[in-house]
């Protein structure tokens, strides 16, 4: 399988803090990758670099073969990105906002209208499509952000906490949508909610202090705790990302 998203040795430091410290990943079509890690582990920074918002100090990311630094426009055409917090222009309506995004992506006229209608339907936004975004609930705002990301049917989707702030019903809708979209696409979602990994991800990567510390299916991750038969993913997460575990793993490699 060819990888639609390739992340190659990304490094990023903010002053003395190394936020991302050599992350490499590749995500083939059909895979939903859960991007996990404690707060401040470097998840959002990595996603911002993949989306072309932040320039890495070293390394690069390729989307459908296009380097995000060397040919950003081509790479971004194949990328749908939901930034953390799902920012959108508050004074616009979801329809107006999505039309703007469609237009920037070269979807104009009837083609643009069809894309906007489809995205609104998929994210169940019809009931609020004419309200200004500022007046919407957090859940609806998040869905406007998701609609914007899937509008142009991108091959690669990078979603930073897509289910944050949603109620259980809305979470399920988004998970169903991600499952539906996964065919033929590479999807990366960052999350704190480990249930999400079992529910929607075919593979999970745990990062801590800017490095990949675990990579595998949910079942493979469960086997990382020695001597425990069926640990919860919460337990695996805590085991891997507590500082003792990191030091232990560094010692193993050293």
């Amino acid at each position: 399988m060819t990888a639609l998203l390739e992340i190659d040795g990304l490094y990023k430091a903010f002053g003395p803090v190394r936020a991302v410290n050599g992350i490499s990943l590749s995500v083939p079509a059909g895979e939903v990758l859960g991007f996990l890690g404690p707060n401040g582990a470097g998840k959002s920074t990595t996603m911002k670099m993949v989306a072309g918002f932040l320039d890495p100090d070293q390394g690069s990311a390729r989307i459908c073969g296009d380097d995000i630094l060397l040919s950003p426009k081509a790479a971004k055409q194949n990328l749908g990105y939901l930034p953390e917090g799902a920012p959108a222009y508050g004074e616009m309506t979801p329809v107006g906002f999505l039309k703007f995004c469609a237009s920037i992506r070269g979807l104009k006229g009837a083609q643009g209208r069809a894309a906007v209608d489809k995205a609104i339907k998929r994210t169940a936004l019809s009931s609020v499509a004419g309200q200004t975004i500022d007046t919407l609930s957090k859940g609806f705002k998040r869905r406007v952000g998701i609609a914007q990301a899937i509008l142009h049917e991108p091959k690669v989707l990078v979603l930073d906490e897509p289910t944050d702030g949603l109620d259980p019903n809305q979470k399920q809708q988004v998970r169903d949508l991600i499952a539906e979209l996964s065919e033929g696409r590479a999807i990366v979602i960052s999350t704190h909610i480990l249930d999400e990994v079992d529910a929607v991800c075919s593979r999970a990567v745990i990062i801590d202090q800017g490095k990949v510390v675990a990579d595998g299916t949910a079942d493979e991750l469960r086997q990382l705790i020695p001597g425990k038969k069926t640990p919860s993913l919460d337990e695996v997460f805590r085991y891997i990302t507590t500082s003792d575990a990191v030091h232990r793993s560094e010692g193993d490699h050293g």
Partner: peptide, 14 residues
């Protein structure tokens, strides 16, 4: 401040 700059700058525009 609102974070929309991240959205704008990750759209395929220079």
């Amino acid at each position: 401040k609102s974070g929309t700059v991240e959205l704008l700058m990750t759209l395929p525009i220079s």
